[in-house]
């Protein structure tokens, strides 16, 4: 009797989930499955496709241009992930110490602002700042560094780092805000105890703040690593992958392959590889940073 009731309840639960599940299947699972299917064909997007087996996947790993795009995405992790998280920790710790002052509010707003601005607008602004006559070069010239001025986004050695700087600027605000929220949850008694034991600001930071923020850091790293690997808009607006593929990333390459070159199969294969790469990076981060106490 009891078992029957429970079973009926389970059924009712599934019924409530059904609308959401249907949407998930139609708009997430099905496109994913179709992408996997397309990746096994050679298809121009219009005519009848021909079976291609794993040929597309072989090309993803053997075509130096495609593989270089994947490597570029991995290099971008330094800028999109490491810089915002480390800098975000420092900024959040500083803001927390001056939390009561009006300056903290201003600082929070200014740092979060890039998150509010549409990425396309940010990309255009930065391409002006980084142009050969832009503000960055003007400042460098003003302090006597004219010799290193250049068109930052048009130079082979600096295009990818320049894109990375834009990404770091965008993501710094998000990380700072998340970490700041995490810090406000830490019991102030811990700090008081530490101070009584004679700990300084650095000791406080490494012994209390950092360990307590494990989960927040995990979220920051996951979000920013995914943003680096799947980057598209910043690159598309600022360099379009140029010069000479120096800043090409998989997201942009997939778009070019599918819509300009009409190699839907190869584009899908690269998309599947990218998805696998994102999952392969995100899962260990989740595992490393999950809360072990619970």
């Amino acid at each position: 009797m009891k078992a029957a009731v429970r079973r009926r309840r389970n059924w009712a639960g599934w019924l409530f989930v059904l609308p959401a599940a249907a949407f998930y299947v139609v708009f997430v699972i099905q496109p994913l499955a179709m992408t996997v299917q397309y990746s096994l064909y050679s298809w121009d997007g219009i005519g009848v496709a021909t079976w291609n087996g794993v040929q597309n996947y072989l090309r993803v790993f053997t075509d130096p241009d495609l593989f270089a795009a994947i490597l570029n995405a991995i290099k971008l992790i330094v800028f999109f992930s490491a810089v915002p998280v480390v800098l975000g920790l420092a900024i959040a710790a500083t803001i927390r110490r001056i939390a009561a002052s009006r300056l903290a509010l201003v600082a929070r707003t200014v740092i979060f602002l890039p998150q509010v601005i549409p990425l396309v607008a940010a990309g255009i602004t930065w391409s002006w700042l980084l142009s050969s006559t832009g503000l960055v070069n003007q400042l460098l010239s003003a302090i006597g560094l004219e010799s290193i001025t250049r068109a930052w986004l048009g130079d082979f050695s600096t295009a990818l780092p320049a894109v990375g700087v834009i990404g770091a600027w965008v993501l710094l605000g998000l990380c700072t805000l998340l970490l700041l929220a995490g810090m406000s949850k830490i019991d102030p008694a811990l700090y008081e105890a530490a101070r009584l034991d004679g700990a300084g600001a650095f000791r406080e930071f490494f012994s209390i703040t950092l360990p307590s923020l494990r989960q927040e850091i995990g979220v920051c790293v996951t979000v920013t690593v995914v943003a680096a690997l799947a980057s598209f808009d910043i690159v598309y607006i600022s360099t379009q992958g140029g010069p000479g593929n120096a800043s090409m990333v998989p997201g942009l390459e997939i778009y070019y392959l599918a819509f300009s070159e009409r190699e839907v199969g190869l584009a899908s294969a690269l998309a599947v590889v990218l998805t696998a790469l994102v999952i392969a990076c995100a899962l260990p981060i989740q595992w490393l940073t999950r809360d072990r106490s619970s």
């Binding site: 249907a22 139609v26 099905q30 179709m34 299917q37 397309y38 064909y41 298809w43 219009i46 496709a49």
Partner: peptide, 22 residues
């Protein structure tokens, strides 16, 4: 719902593009 899903899944099994009017 099931019908829609069934239909699209069936279509997904054929070679891409073969369902379009050529």
């Amino acid at each position: 719902m099931v019908v829609i899903l069934g239909g699209s899944l069936a279509a997904a099994c054929a070679a891409p593009g073969s369902g379009n009017a050529q």
